[in-house]
Measured scan of single mutants.
Amino acid sequence: MASQGTKRSYEQMETDGERQNATEIRASVGKMIGGIGRFYIQMCTELKLSDYEGRLIQNSLTIERMVLSAFDERRNKYLEEHPSAGKDPKKTGGPIYRRVNGKWMRELILYDKEEIRRIWRQANNGDDATAGLTHMMIWHSNLNDATYQRTRALVRTGMDPRMCSLMQGSTLPRRSGAAGAAVKGVGTMVMELVRMIKRGINDRNFWRGENGRKTRIAYERMCNILKGKFQTAAQKAMMDQVRESRNPGNAEFEDLTFLARSALILRGSVAHKSCLPACVYGPAVASGYDFEREGYSLVGIDPFRLLQNSQVYSLIRPNENPAHKSQLVWMACHSAAFEDLRVLSFIKGTKVLPRGKLSTRGVQIASNENMETMESSTLELRSRYWAIRTRSGGNTNQQRASAGQISIQPTFSVQRNLPFDRTTIMAAFNGNTEGRTSDMRTEIIRMMESARPEDVSFQGRGVFELSDEKAASPIVPSFDMSNEGSYFFGDNAEEYDN
Rank of each mutant, 00 (worst) to 15 (best):
Thr6Ser: 07
Lys7Met: 03
Arg8Trp: 08
Arg8Phe: 03
Tyr10Leu: 10
Tyr10Lys: 01
Tyr10Glu: 00
Glu11Thr: 13
Glu14Ser: 08
Asp16Ser: 01
Glu18Asn: 06
Ala27Met: 05
Ser28Trp: 03
Ser28Pro: 06
Val29Arg: 01
Val29Trp: 05
Lys31Pro: 00
Gly35Lys: 06
Ile36Val: 12
Phe39Tyr: 11
Tyr40Ser: 04
Gln42Lys: 11
Lys48Gly: 14
Leu49Met: 14
Glu53Phe: 07
Gly54Asn: 13
Arg55Trp: 10
Ile57His: 01
Ser60Ala: 03
Leu61Ile: 15
Leu61Glu: 02
Thr62Phe: 05
Met66Asn: 08
Val67His: 12
Val67Phe: 08
Ala70Glu: 08
Phe71Cys: 09
Phe71Thr: 05
Lys77Gln: 11
His82Asn: 10
Ser84Gly: 14
Ser84Ala: 15
Lys90Val: 15
Lys91Gln: 08
Gly93Trp: 09
Pro95Gln: 09
Arg98Ile: 13
Arg99Asp: 07
Asn101Ala: 00
Arg106Phe: 11
Arg106Ser: 11
Arg106His: 15
Leu108Ile: 13
Ile109Asp: 07
Tyr111Ala: 02
Lys113Asn: 10
Glu115Ala: 05
Arg117Asn: 03
Arg118Gly: 12
Asn124Ser: 07
Ala129Lys: 12
Thr130Ala: 11
Thr130Gly: 05
Trp139Cys: 11
Leu143Ser: 08
Asp145His: 11
Gln149Ile: 10
Arg150Ser: 09
Arg150Asp: 03
Arg152Gly: 09
Ala153Pro: 04
Ala153Tyr: 03
Gly158Ala: 05
Met159Pro: 00
Met159Ser: 00
Asp160His: 10
Asp160Trp: 10
Pro161Asn: 07
Pro161Ser: 14
Met163Leu: 15
Thr171His: 01
Leu172His: 11
Leu172Ser: 03
Leu172Glu: 06
Leu172Val: 12
Ala179Pro: 08
Ala179Lys: 06
Ala182Asp: 00
Val190Thr: 00
Glu192Tyr: 10
Leu193Tyr: 04
Val194Ser: 11
Gly200Ile: 04
Arg204His: 02
Asn205Ile: 08
Phe206His: 05
Arg208Asp: 02
Asn211Cys: 15
Gly212Asp: 03
Arg216Gln: 13
Tyr219Glu: 04
Glu220Ile: 10
Met222Ser: 01
Asn224Met: 10
Ile225His: 08
Lys227Phe: 09
Lys227His: 03
Lys229Ala: 08
Thr232Val: 13
Thr232Ser: 11
Gln235Asp: 05
Lys236Pro: 01
Met239Cys: 06
Arg243Ile: 08
Glu244Ser: 12
Ser245Phe: 04
Ala251Met: 05
Ala251Gly: 11
Glu254Gln: 12
Glu254Arg: 00
Thr257Ser: 10
Phe258Pro: 02
Leu264Asn: 07
Gly268Leu: 00
Gly268Thr: 06
Val270Trp: 03
His272Asn: 12
His272Pro: 08
Leu276Val: 12
Val280Met: 13
Ala284Glu: 00
Ala286His: 11
Asp290Thr: 14
Arg293Thr: 09
Gly295Ile: 07
Leu298Met: 13
Gly300Met: 09
Ile301Tyr: 12
Asp302Ile: 00
Ser310Pro: 01
Tyr313Trp: 12
Ile316Gly: 07
Pro322His: 06
Val329Gln: 00
Cys333Met: 15
Ser335Arg: 00
Ser335His: 13
Ala337Asp: 04
Ala337Met: 10
Arg342Asp: 09
Val343Phe: 03
Leu344Asn: 05
Leu344Ile: 12
Phe346Val: 03
Ile347Pro: 01
Gly349Val: 09
Val352Gly: 01
Leu353Ala: 00
Leu353Met: 01
Lys357Tyr: 14
Lys357Gly: 04
Thr360Met: 09
Thr360Ala: 11
Gly362Cys: 07
Gln364Tyr: 11
Asn368Phe: 02
Glu369Val: 11
Glu369Thr: 10
Thr373Ala: 14
Met374Val: 09
Ser377Asn: 10
Glu380Phe: 02
Ile388Met: 15
Thr390Lys: 06
Arg391Tyr: 14
Arg391Lys: 14
Gln398Tyr: 02
Gln399Lys: 15
Arg400Gln: 09
Ala403Cys: 15
Gly404Pro: 01
Gln405Asn: 03
Gln409Trp: 03
Gln409Tyr: 00
Phe412Glu: 03
Val414Glu: 08
Gln415Cys: 14
Arg416Cys: 02
Arg416Tyr: 11
Pro419Cys: 13
Ile425Gly: 01
Met426Lys: 10
Asn430Ile: 08
Gly431Met: 01
Gly431Asn: 08
Thr433Tyr: 00
Glu434Met: 10
Thr437Glu: 02
Asp439Lys: 07
Ile444Trp: 07
Met447Gln: 12
Met448Ile: 07
Glu449Asn: 07
Ala451Lys: 14
Arg452Lys: 14
Pro453Arg: 08
Asp455Leu: 15
Ser457Tyr: 13
Ser457Gly: 08
Glu465His: 03
Val476Cys: 10
Asn483Ser: 13
Glu484Asp: 09
Phe488Ile: 11
Asn492Phe: 03
